[in-house]
Design a protein around this nucleic acid. Sequence first.
RNA 1: GGCGGAGUAGCUCAGUCGGUUAGAGCAGCGGAAUCAUAAUCCGCGUGUCCGGGGUUCGAAUCCCUGCUCCGCUACCA
Length: 629
Amino acid sequence: MNSTKTFYVTTPIYYVNGMPHIGHAYTTILADVLARYHRAQGDDVFFLTGVDEHGQKIQQAAEDAGVEPQEQCDRMALHFKNAWEKLEISYDFFMRTTADFHKKAVQDVLQDLWDKGEIYEHEYGGYYCVGCERFYTTKELVDGKCPQHLKKPEFIKEKNYFFRMSKYQEWLVNYINENPGFIQPESRKNEVLGFLNGALEDLCISRPKSRLSWGIELPFDKDFVTYVWFDALLNYVTGIGYKQDEDRFDKWWPADYHLIGKDIVTTHCVYWPTMMKAAGIPMPKTIFAHGWWMVDATKMSKSLQNIVKPLDLVDKYGVDPVRYYLIRDMVLGQDANFSEEMFIKRYNSDLANDFGNLASRIATLIRKNFGNNIPKGNNPGLDEREIQTNGEKLPKEVQKLISEMRLNEAIETILSYVRSINRYMEMKAPWKLVKTDHEKAGLVLYTAAQGFCIAAKLLEPVMPGKICSVLSIFPLKSENESWGNLISGEELKEFQILFPRIQAAPDKPAPEKNMKTDEDSLNLISIDEFFKAKLITAKILEAEKVLGTSKLLKLQIDTGSDTRQIVAGIAEYYAPEQLIGKTIVAVVNLQPAVIRGIESNGMLLAAKKGKQLQLITTSDSIEPGASVG
RNA sequence: GGCGGAGUAGCUCAGUCGGUUAGAGCAGCGGAAUCAUAAUCCGCGUGUCCGGGGUUCGAAUCCCUGCUCCGCUACCA
């Protein structure tokens, strides 16, 4: 309420030569979570994201699609906007580098730099590969040929414009050293300093139109367009009014966070700061590079498209749990592993069991015993006070962790409070207490409900949709997370299960684990039941070991009607090469399973006793796809 | 090759300006309870803190060295 702070956060603007993927989504969700936290704290927030639309690849993509570049960009921009809508991204402005105001502002900056002598013209000769559409240094050439196309590049002379980046090298090194928080995490800072150990060269910031026309024209030479990075980086300032509305710009700048992926550290930590320095723009507070989501460490063969795509989980399980998982399971700065299995574990234990179920039990108890009216919270005892005190401390703790970019720990802290409420419930057992001391039971439920609301409120930036809907059933005085804002005597609206447990775990390998359970029970089955399993002969086409496992082989089998992949735990008994060509018996209508990140669509049959295992094969040759039974 | 980061319980990670029996969550095992989404709660960890040296009264934490993984960078002149 008092002095409103401003908070300006950016994502990179994404290059529109491809569809939105997990990398784009993650950075954007991260920015969104930060933006929402700061809004909830009462800060004045500006959240900028968008797309980068100029350059060679865009022009090429448009040509391939047979449309004008602008149309190609319009289409792609829409894909990104739609994706962000689906992911509940609350950006304040969606930047497009083809917007007139941006082009004009970029030209203004270029003109200034030109006038100040920060940009100069230079003609040089170089080896240019038409296939790659780029110059190579002599060192890069292999036998005088382009390493990509193995063709001899042409030596051409070309004029271009260069930004005097090199003259800021020393300044930049000092700046980075004097401002330890400027580049985070520290490992990236060191990386940049390492890069700056070598001589920094001037940056070519133009492209002749004869080669590339899709870009922002240089104001001082209409035969050239601006190099796409130079154009793109400036979005961080043009998007908030630079060279258009200085008041607006001054309000937001310098940015609190430029969030980036670790792949674009150099552009953001070298090009961009020197550009700003030359243009007289103050430095942003922090450039933060996060790691990557590794999807299935064991890379699958490209022919198969059965990889679980992270964004597919949104369709399957909803946005909020996916946002929760992404924020909870990545330690910022490090890489993280993505798998549906880990997602489901996280979802079930945190969201369904701890958080959702707590709401459910509170709601049911209030409904059954208090006619759906929030009971009174009078005369709190020691235990109640403890829940209250911890609940009152929680927002500060969370805020601190977030300011340190330890979002995973912030979430864990909130969840640990939720667990403490579950413990409190267990200790007080209001379902029993209600029979002997109705008022005390009411106090317990009030305390639990109020604590729950505080925790929920703090999770809202991560799961805006779900939290909004669960909080809306509680009668609350205010939007903040203060103790006592839950109103006694008012109605608790109808509760609906928030996060239904996900039952089917994607990977249920455990083929041998069942051995100790009652396998010898004499259950007889009907012949119909037997034929539920569709058994056929199949031919093994390919076999390879699953890396990092001792027992697993990945097989491609011909079932007569299709070629499919199965994972079999037989590596200790068969080498991959001795399997190829064998005709085996397989169950082909099993539910698919993901085992060690690899999808398995079926199961082969083998006989096993003790340490022996033999595949079930056919004695004579028979076509793949023959029925077995 | 150089620089940097990482290597802690089955899994994901805390902890490290040296100091009590090294922690959390998840998974697993045993039990209690039954308001709740077969959810919850309680109890259970003989971990070579990557290996080897060293400094120290004392090291996961500092130094040296080796190994593995990752990143950046440079490349067999």
